[in-house]
Structure formats: C-alpha cells, structure tokens
Design a protein around this nucleic acid. Structure first.
Lengths: 339, 339
DNA sequence: CGGCAATATGTTAGCGTTCACATCGCCTCG
DNA sequence: CGAGGCGATGTGAACGCTAACATATTGCCG
C-alpha cells in the first residue's frame, strides 16, 4: 500500500454509527432486505459509500456456516482446454454468486492432487469440481464425496457420480468416420497416454468407428499429449507407406505428426491425411490448416457449475447428457486415393 | 455428498472435549506452539484425527484480521503464458503459506477487471498481483494501491510501483539482432495490439536493434496476438518481395505468418525468415520449427509471490531486475542471402 | 381518536478462532 | 521447607457478522 499503516477496515458498527441506525439495519441494507424504508436505506448506503465499507466475508461465513465457495481442481493449466475450462468455471461461478477457487496441479499426480484437495477442503468449499479425467483420480472421488459435494468433469464417469463431460468417444468416431468417408482404410492413431480417460475414450471411438466401417485398425502409438511425442510417433508412422491417414488424440500431437511427415517427404494431405482433436485456436492457421474435433470447454464449465450449485441446493445427482463435440473440416485431410 | 445431511463440522471445542483439554490447548497444538507437553500434544492430535477436525479459516481470519490470501488478476487464461504464470503463482503461493485466488478475466477490459478486483478485495486478499500488462490497467494501480498491496507483473512499470517482469525489450533486441546477424536488412514486424505494454516493448526493441544495426525498419503490421491476425499480416507481407525476415510479437502470430507465406509460395526459411516470441511448447514442432524468444513464466510467478510476501511483511518497495529472456534458435530463420 | 395490524428497527446471542492474561503445578534454591 | 519462578494449561473476551426475537413506529379502521 502507498502509506504504511492503515486503520482497520470499517465494520457494520461503524457504518451504523455514521448512519444513525443499528448494525442490523446495515446488515439488512447490505443483504438487500426489503424491510428497510427507502430513506433509511439511502442514509445507510451513503454511510457505506463514505466509509468504503466492505462486508467481511469471514465473519459472514462463520455465522452462516457457508463459505459460498466452489473449488476446481484441474491439471495442465498451461494448455488451451484446461485454461478455457478454468476461466469458464470462474465466470459461471461468479454469475451464480459463488467464489471460485482455481486449483491447478501441473500434472495428474496423486499426492499433489491430494494436497490440493486438502487445501480446498481447508477453504471450506461447498463443492469440488474435479476437472481431472485421469484414472488416478477415480479413487479420490469415493473418499472425497463423503466430505463434500463432488462434480466430476469426465466423459465416462463411474455410475451414480455427479458429472458433466464432452463426448470424447463420439468425437473420435466423428474424426474416424470422416477419414473413412474420404476413402482411407489404413488409419493410424496417435493415442493419448494410458491412464487418461479422454485418451481411452478417443482410442475406443477410433476403434469402434473402424469396426463399424469394416476397416482394420492401423498402427497405434501412444504419445503424451505433447507435440514432441506426436513428432516421434509421426516419424514411426511415416516409415509405413501403407498408412494414408492419422487420427491424433489432440492437436499438439497432430502438429508434431505433420512435421514428422513433412520431414520424411510425405505431403499432408496429398500423401497422408491428419486429423486432430480439440481445435485449439492456432489449429486453423497451421500449415496445412488442421481438420480437428472441436470441444466446447466454455459450455462444459458452465454446465459443471450448474450441476454443482444444484447439488448444493437440492442434493440431486442428476447427470446431464454429454456435450457433443463437432468436426471442423479444414485442409489437413483429403480423399484417398487423391481425386 | 453421499448421504444427505451431515453433522456440523467438529470445532476446537469438540476436539478439546474429546482430548480432555481446553480449546486453547487445541489451538496451540494446531498452531505448532512448543508450549505443549508431548503427551498432551499426542492426545490432542489423536482427537483431531479421530474427528477429522479441520481448522475453520474464517474464524481464524476474523480474529487475526488476516486472510492469508493473495489474488492474481490475469487475462487470456487460455494462452500458454498466462496459464503457466497462474500455475506458478499458485504453487509459489502455497509454498509461502498463502492461499492464492486466481482471477482470470478473458480480455483486458476495464469494467470486467474492476469487477474482478472488487471480488478480490471482498475476499480480503492481502496483496493483488496484477498480471495484466495492458495500458488500460495502469490507472487501476494508483487507486488500488491505496487499499491493498499491489505487485505489477509488468516489463515497464511506472516509477515507484512494486513490480516484476520479463525484459520484453531485450527479448525483441535478441530476436532482431539475430536476424540482422543472418544478413537480413528488411525485417518486418507483426506487432501485438496497441495498448499492450509487452507489444509496445517488443516493437521498441525491434526498432532499437534496427537502429543500432544501421537498418531501416521494415513494414510493420499490428495484429491482436491471434494466429488469424498473424495470417492476415503475413498475407500482406508476402506481397512485398523485398522483405526477407519477419519478427512476430508472439508465436501464434508467427505461425499465422508462416502459413500465409507458404500459401503465397514463399518458403520459410529459404525465402523468408520468421522469428516468434514466447516459445510455446508447440513451437519446436511446427513446420518449420520456430526460432523464438523464450520467457520463463514459472520464475516470473515465483518472483511475483516473493515480492508480494515481502511487501506484506516489510512494506518494502523493492523492484527486482527484469528477468532476461532467451533466444531459442531453430529452423525458421536462415542466412540472407541463402548460403 | 383508541386499538390493532403491519411494517420498520433494535437487541441479544453466538458462530470458531486467537489473544491476553490468569492459574496451577512443580522444580529449584537459599 | 517455603518463596520464587517457570512451564503447562485454562479462562474470558473479542473479531464482524447473521438469526431470532423484541420492541418501536406507522397506518388504518371503526
């Protein structure tokens, strides 16, 4: 602050004294009670403005026994999806009158997550949104849900658990069917790492679409979501001339695949088609522009908050349908054989 | 929660009763006071564990008049830099014993930011970290700093304001000198939008390096940080055959520039060199791999927390030196004329 | 204009902590 | 063996608010 010591923040009592009313009347004004006469309200409001009064949330939380807080645990905060989700949860929470505590843990690591959850619990959150669709967190849920309301953000939640999600399986089917429709028969998959629910779902969607389309699964390589791992996978795939298309489990890996293909002298999409997943903002301006599956993280966040607030208010365990992703066709996939 | 109504959370009094001591002794144990006999401590600890006691932060904050909270206001939470910064601040804060309130506002918009700051102030944060190096926030600082400790995360802070930052100017000089060293004389710049401090600093660094190198400024186009805007700028630049290099103010725009260049039939780096800024994780796996300037967001976040906690404890207004960025040479820039 | 609602305001207690201080043992030492 | 001191523990009050209830004030009717 600009000048060293400052007075204690004004309290309701201070406002009340200045306005010539009781602290309870101030409380009523602050809480928008309609049992206050217009002129009194104005006098109180004037005192509030003059003093710069700000209600003490701790005192309020103490007596109401409600923190008014929701916690979001999420991983990989530097990535587009999680970042967007966090922002959207924050915004939706504010709108719903809740304070949101964003708790990023860099990677899905059990002890880090447990510490983060402890911190959330210490903050007396009324619900925890678990934005970590990783296998290692599924055990947490059972234990956690005895202590606090829990909403999983998860495309394949355990039965009976409150959750919201984007249909990863359907997205992968979309991508794979598109490639199949272009005439590709040997479609490789660069999967996300084992343990991630979304990775599993996308892989299974790829497998299911292939089966339904009467095609054999192409080569399959597991990455770690990074473009580096996509690059390495792409280098392997590039050696197999029979592969004409690649479905990568996210855009970063897709971009790595594309680079590897380029380096191996195979053109995208003329020689090999590539489809990604996520539709990060840069996807449309890669070279070539990336065909991918768009996920609506903003809606996901809003939905999560909605379910959480309902859970708090009514204790219901309603699971809304998964949000449908959308195929965004650009230029990184082309017919096979070329027209 | 799994079963409807749950008892009130246990309080210190409950623990005290179970352990057969006074609530004050429980308080001492919880706060790690050394004025408690070993066996008493154990008895209390056992009671705590048995009841699953968790100290009520609101009550504590109420009486200590300290929230133990730090707020971070930041924009564009979906991007790599801000996301990384937020995560790093969160982590550093936890380590320093503070709760961090992450407050993302999608874009630097004054009213949204003011609302966010109000929310932070309502939460009684002990310091606000302003991770929004946008011009429209500079006015906020003066007003805000009368109410709470403020740390700007800013590469060109107003005098006398506590701040931390990465040297944007130096980074731009690094990039431009590198291009100059490769023999380029006509170096275009795709700038960040007007109003952003970092954009200004990078532009000025470009200008300064050019001046020092005895080169005239090449064409200059203002983007909005997005790859789309980079693409549009690139399309314009591509028409000017005399331009042999482009310094883009971030990696997204660089990638858009590269695509536009490709579409115009100009090869990167053989015909035109491109350098970006940020070193996002995907930069190394673009085609071609992007030469860029790396910023250490993690250190930035740690430093910001450090300065904030010092400010709270000692009221000092120490401004640590700007963090130096680093040029990462990859393949998107080449000698001119080609070797 | 007295009485009785209804409306507006005030009073008291208590939420779960910590702080300041009081008390209780027990040990030490003259 | 008693005074003094110190270490361990307990007591009471206060933080700023809301909930529940008590009281004052107003308006309206007969």
């Amino acid at each position: 602050m600009v000048n060293g010591e400052s007075k204690n923040a004004p309290s309701m009592a201070d406002v009340a004294a200045l306005a010539g009313v009781s602290h309870q009347t101030v409380s009523r004004v602050v809480n928008g009670s309609d049992a206050v006469r217009g002129d009194t309200r104005e006098r109180v409001q004037a005192a509030i403005d003059e003093l710069g009064y700000r209600r003490n949330k701790s005192a309020r939380a103490l007596v109401t026994r409600r923190s008014g807080r929701l916690g979001l645990l999420y991983t990989q905060p530097h990535l587009y999806g999680p970042g967007t989700l966090a922002a959207s949860v924050h915004q939706a929470g504010q709108r719903a009158g809740y304070d949101i505590i964003l708790s990023p843990v860099p990677y899905p690591e059990a002890t880090a997550a447990e510490r983060a959850i402890e911190a959330l619990l210490d903050d007396a959150v009324e619900a925890v949104l678990l934005g970590v669709s990783h296998q290692s967190f599924e055990d947490l849920v059972a234990q956690l849900s005895t202590q606090v309301e829990v909403v999983m953000i998860h495309s394949d939640p355990p039965a009976g658990v409150r959750s919201v999600g984007i249909d990863q399986h359907a997205g992968a089917v979309l991508a794979t069917e598109y490639l199949l429709g272009l005439g590709h028969r040997n479609i490789a998959h660069v999967a996300g790492p084992v343990g991630w629910i979304d990775a599993r779902q996308r892989r299974e969607g790829w497998l299911a679409a292939l089966r339904d389309g009467g095609a054999e699964p192409g080569p399959e390589i597991f990455g770690d979501w990074s473009s580096r791992s996509g690059y390495e996978a792409g280098a392997v795939i590039a050696r197999d001339a029979s592969v004409t298309a690649v479905f990568a489990a996210n855009d970063s890996m897709a971009l790595g695949v594309i680079r590897a293909l380029h380096e191996a002298g195979r053109r995208v999409p003329q020689d090999v088609s590539v489809v990604g997943f996520d539709d990060v903002p840069d996807a449309a301006y890669l070279w070539p522009p990336l065909t991918t599956v768009r996920q609506d993280f903003a809606s996901l966040g809003e939905l999560a908050v909605e379910v959480a607030t309902e859970a708090i208010a009514e204790g219901t365990v309603e699971v809304p349908p998964l949000i449908a992703p959308e195929l965004v066709v650009r230029d990184s996939a082309a017919p096979n054989p070329p027209a």
